[in-house]
Design a protein around this nucleic acid. Sequence first.
DNA 1: ACAGAGGTATACCGATCTGTCTATTCTTCT
DNA 2: AGAAGAATAGACAGATCGGTATACCTCTGT
Lengths: 191, 191
Amino acid sequence: MDKRQQLIHSAFELFYRNGIHAVGINQILQTAGVAKKTLYHHFASKEELIAAVVEYRDEKFYNWLASRLELVKPGYDGLNELFDAVDDWINNRVDLLTDFHGCFFINTCAEFNDPQQLIYQQCQQHKKKINGLIERQIRALGILEPATHHVTDSISLLKEGAIVMAHVQGDLTAAKKAKDMAWIVLAAYLS
Amino acid sequence: MDKRQQLIHSAFELFYRNGIHAVGINQILQTAGVAKKTLYHHFASKEELIAAVVEYRDEKFYNWLASRLELVKPGYDGLNELFDAVDDWINNRVDLLTDFHGCFFINTCAEFNDPQQLIYQQCQQHKKKINGLIERQIRALGILEPATHHVTDSISLLKEGAIVMAHVQGDLTAAKKAKDMAWIVLAAYLS
DNA sequence: ACAGAGGTATACCGATCTGTCTATTCTTCT
DNA sequence: AGAAGAATAGACAGATCGGTATACCTCTGT
């Protein structure tokens, strides 16, 4: 019954479904069942609440993906698991992440389009963390070291493409397509 | 000096840079140098202006890409041109499209997250039109007919991934990576 | 026992939002 | 010349925005 956490949780649900700027503070308060004074006791401004929401989602998403990847061997299995995880997410088979509405961080960058803003940078930072997970898989594959970052970015590109295809174009098989392409591309790098 | 067009143009610039919900009507009016009455003479509401802006960008972007693809032979050359065009766009070498801030349609879907809303559907429609351009290239390659749509979606996925990587992660070489992957994947399909 | 922290509910503030209205000017067509 | 249409500036309405203030109510730790 931590009110602060309750606020963050409700705010995230509303932001994720409706966009951040479209959601007012009173709406969040009503959904969370919390008094306005309490919000401003925990956060100095709406901006701070937003930052806390982004951090909350960052941790939740990263921990979810990291824990899935820990279940399998890094490398082949890890990359399969990566795309399977995205597939599960896209097709709403992951309760933890709530109904799929695209990537919250991509969506947030769309609204806070200035790279100098804190919130934009938080989103970039999140993506870097996720890239770190991917990079570990790539290294385990035995890709030649100089190509590691390039290949990591390529896999990341496929993952981002799958998310956007699923969100905007409604292609629920996008993660499977990305997975197939990933192995074709990696085969070319490993030969 | 068409006031209606001036409004749409100014609104697009502001929406693209700052997000739609973050931009007020008065700000648009000031930027466009147009009176409020004139806006509501041409559009019944802000919603209608937004719809007109999406349509405007749809036409502008589609016509730009289509005209670039018309300069080369469909197939190999067309697909190269597709990714070169995206590369030019991402790296701000296309004045017509104004400074790159991600894909306006992806951004807009992030703000109007409900697939039943008109504006969301306009964005989906735009993506379908772009997919049509890609599909023409795929057919010209002589891919086996049953795979045409699958391959088209795969190339579209690579394109979307490149746009998002460039926007969120700041990878300005994303289009080149996508192009490389496209040929690796297509080689596998053509063999 | 009682101070203090965290909570509720709600009135309020100034700013800003979309949209309407008035009153006036410029342009264009016949 | 004169009517009609499109434009102007800007006041205004009503709602909502983020944020503050007031007054009161629980808990909890020493």
